[in-house]
Simulated assay, not measured.
Amino acid sequence: MSQHADRRYQVTLHPIFDRDFVHLGDHLQYRSDDEDHGLEAAANACSLALYEIGLDNLLDDRALYIDLPVAWLARPELWPMPAKRMVIGLLGTTALGEAELEGLDVLKARGYRLMSGTDQDSALTALADVVRLDAGRDLDDPRLAGWQTGSQPMLATGVDDDTRLEAARHAGCTLFTGGYLASPRRHRRSVSGTHGNKGIQIRLVSELYREDVDLSAINDLIVQIPHLHVAIIKRANSSFFGQADRQSSLMRAMQVLGLQELRTLVATMLLSSNFPSSRLTLRLALVRAFMCEQLAQPFSDIDAYDAFTTGLFSLMDVLLETDRQTLLAEVPLGPAITGAIETRRGSLGALLSLAEDYEALAGEPDAQADSARLRDCYLAAQQRTEALMQMTL
């Protein structure tokens, strides 16, 4: 798929009710114009629903039911968060192999709930927390008696009239979704490659990392990027900063945020404005950056934010689609950070190498037992990344 293909993406939320018609959750379904249901379509759906609209705005405190490709089981750094609010189903009916079953075990261990369909692998059904049935097709399934006496609640889909609702209730279903109960809600987004002027983006990043930061110059650049302008003001007015008076001035909002928060928010927003598939790399870059920062904490001679910047800029050239040498020449990061990125030199380079090496192990179920400190740093970095992306995208 071309980086700059023009596409539209849609997610649809189907409300899920219990027997008392209490709205408990929503089943998110998604598609793109080319009907791609692979990793990229799933990434776009998660990006739009979780990080652009925001889970709280979308669902209040309800659970999100979502079907993801089997390939996502091998990419735990991409699993939607928070786990306790997710019910994960798998697309397709392919038999699951040993690696996929191990991925399901990891999902369960991290607090995710699983959802299976009647036509899916029996191993998935055995692990599932919710069994999904089609109210127009599955209510006479010979396995129904076993599910009725089991501990797994049954979700009836396709409840399009009163007859199907009553049949599903009689069959023992306790969760229901379909047009008879409520109309689905749709959200669409158009994407056509990188938005905005890349020259302005690089100049803005350069200004943010100068030794003597000039907020007036940064202000003049940000006003040319409307979505970033709005995000900064929204962030400054969030409850996190506890401002008594609402800020409407971009300059004042930047002062409220402070330089470190401003740098992080700008990087996140600029990079997320690229084609949605780049958000996968953005998440990787942020996890790496936060992990470097975590790893630096015990060392008094290593600045934690320098470590964060090293991790982030190790992938900045990929995210901005520009030459690394050109970017490092234009952005005044200093010799220690530049050397770490270019040749893994010095203490910052050692931290970056450690974070990169652990990324390759993080998805392995049998990662070394002696890496507890690394795993703690990695998990903390994932949590901070998800929190940041939910807050800013």
Rank of each mutant, 00 (worst) to 15 (best):
T281M: 12
T163M: 13
H227T: 06
D18V: 13
Q390H: 15
V213P: 02
Q382N: 09
R19S: 15
A43H: 03
G363Y: 05
T149H: 10
A123V: 05
K198A: 02
I225G: 00
A367N: 09
E356V: 10
E261N: 09
C292P: 03
D6M: 07
I302F: 00
L286D: 01
A182W: 01
D61P: 02
Y358G: 04
G38K: 12
A285Q: 01
I66A: 01
Q243C: 09
G193Q: 06
L354Y: 12
Q260K: 12
A49F: 07
P365V: 09
S273G: 09
T385G: 07
Q297Y: 14
A145Q: 06
A126M: 08
Q382H: 09
L265R: 00
E166S: 13
A109D: 11
A71P: 02
L50T: 02
D376Q: 14
A231K: 00
Y305R: 15
G196Y: 03
A43F: 03
H23W: 15
A123R: 11
V159A: 11
Q10E: 14
L295V: 14
G339C: 12
G242D: 13
E207W: 00
C173N: 02
L144K: 00
I302A: 01
A336I: 04
I302S: 00
Q29W: 10
E356Y: 08
L68D: 02
A109S: 12
V11Q: 02
P153K: 07
F21V: 11
H229P: 09
L139M: 06
I337R: 05
Y378P: 07
G146W: 03
T118E: 03
L64Q: 02
A304M: 12
L96Y: 07
D134N: 15
T174K: 14
L215K: 02
R186W: 06
P276S: 06
R344H: 15
P365A: 11
G363H: 08
G89Q: 01
Q294N: 12
D214Q: 04
F241A: 05
A167N: 15
D119N: 12
E356G: 06
Q247D: 07
S277C: 08
P335I: 13
T322S: 11
L107T: 04
D162K: 14
D138A: 04
R246V: 10
L181G: 03
G150K: 01
R31T: 13
I88G: 08
L175H: 13
G150N: 03
E293I: 11
G103Y: 08
S371P: 04
F275E: 05
T125S: 14
L328G: 08
V22A: 15
A109K: 08
C292G: 05
A304E: 13
I16C: 00
R288G: 04
R132F: 04
